[in-house]
């Protein structure tokens, strides 16, 4: 029930976790000031992407997977994982995809949009630190 602006603000707050503001305040960078700057960057990224979408298709044309359903994209990632020798991860991913209900039975309206987001973010996190 929250608005888009509130949700984007909450997303900015999430990305600020783990930053020490006590010392930052002494250096003149306030949490509120940085939060404002983050929100500006978030809206900049959101709007630039939306405008790009509006003009897409004229110069370079749509990419080969632009119209591929996100579930198929996940299956393509499973194939890549298998080729890379990560069979267990591929099987686990396929299992989870089968568990994912479609439409109203999932309780969500936009499961495929969320899946598309996860595909877009795949591999974007730094690898976990190795422990010795």
């Amino acid at each position: 029930s929250s608005s888009i602006t509130e949700l984007l603000g909450a997303l900015c707050d999430c990305s600020l976790s783990g930053v020490s503001w006590k010392r930052r305040a002494l250096g003149g960078v306030s949490r509120e000031g940085f939060r404002r700057a983050l929100k500006k960057r978030a809206y900049g990224a959101l709007l630039s992407k939306l405008f790009q979408d509006g003009t897409k298709g004229s110069a370079s044309g749509p990419s080969a997977t632009a119209n591929t359903p996100p579930r198929n994209k996940v299956l393509m990632i499973c194939f890549d994982l298998r080729v890379a020798g990560c069979r267990e991860e591929a099987e686990r991913l396929e299992e989870q995809l089968e568990r994912l209900s479609e439409g109203a039975s999932s309780g969500l309206k936009e499961v495929d949009a969320v899946l598309e987001l996860l595909v877009q973010l795949a591999g974007s996190a730094p690898p976990p630190p190795t422990s010795f």
Binding site: L7, A10, D53, E110, V114, L117
Partner: peptide
């Protein structure tokens, strides 16, 4: 952050645009 993203998708935000926002926020933080 996943539940915030789910709610944003439910509000009609384009997932590609949302992924650009998340990457931008990560760069900044």
């Amino acid at each position: 952050s996943l539940s915030i993203c789910v709610r944003l998708c439910e509000q009609g935000i384009n997932p590609e645009a949302l992924s650009a926002v998340i990457k931008e926020l990560r760069k900044a933080s």
